[in-house]
């Protein structure tokens, strides 16, 4: 069985030690997913697997057989940016840009989680079906993506500007 990456079928690596992140960066020349810790502690390596956000550094590539992976390269290109990518540029949702692909992938799936009604640590009543869209909810839900440059305000602004309607 193969792994689908940005719509293309890819053979899993022979060495089962290869993480999904190393598969992308070292083997497939897709360096959009970044390595900030290789320990699950920063979120820079966030990609989408069947639409869910996961950390590619703690995922073995072998586990991805039969699954569909989307990386930042599959979301938009410099000439054709996705609306959220465009909003990151406009709202200055980054400085060095290193955490950025992870932030964007994370945010896209986060909006889906919000819409699905997945509760969060700051949700007042976890039994309620709909979650109110608020800056606090976004901040809590994005907390798995560190940004040492401190572009947090811009990131939240970019997500709010683009995704508020979809999320509600």
């Amino acid at each position: 069985m193969s792994i689908t990456i940005n719509g293309k079928a890819v053979d899993p690596p022979e060495d089962p030690r290869v993480s999904l992140l190393d598969l992308l960066r070292d083997h497939l020349a897709l360096p959009g997913a970044k390595m900030g810790c290789n320990q699950g502690a920063c979120g820079a390596c966030t990609v989408l697997v069947d639409g869910e956000r996961v950390l590619s550094c703690l995922t073995l590539a072998a586990q991805m057989e039969g699954r569909s992976v989307t990386t930042i390269e599959g979301i938009g290109s410099p000439d054709v940016l996705a609306p959220l990518q465009q909003a990151f540029v406009e709202h200055d949702g980054f400085q060095c840009g290193y955490c950025t692909p992870g932030q964007i992938c994370s945010a896209l799936a986060m909006v889906e989680e919000l819409r699905r009604g997945v509760p969060s640590h700051v949700t007042g009543d976890v039994s309620s079906e709909a979650i109110a869209f608020s800056s606090e909810e976004l901040r809590e839900r994005m907390s798995g993506n560190l940004c040492r440059c401190g572009a947090y305000n811009g990131i939240i602004d970019a997500i709010t500007a683009t995704c508020r309607e979809t999320a509600e």
Partner: peptide, 8 residues
């Protein structure tokens, strides 16, 4: 943890 880790 984080949302990503909880998904995994």
């Amino acid at each position: 943890a984080s949302a990503q880790i909880r998904n995994m």
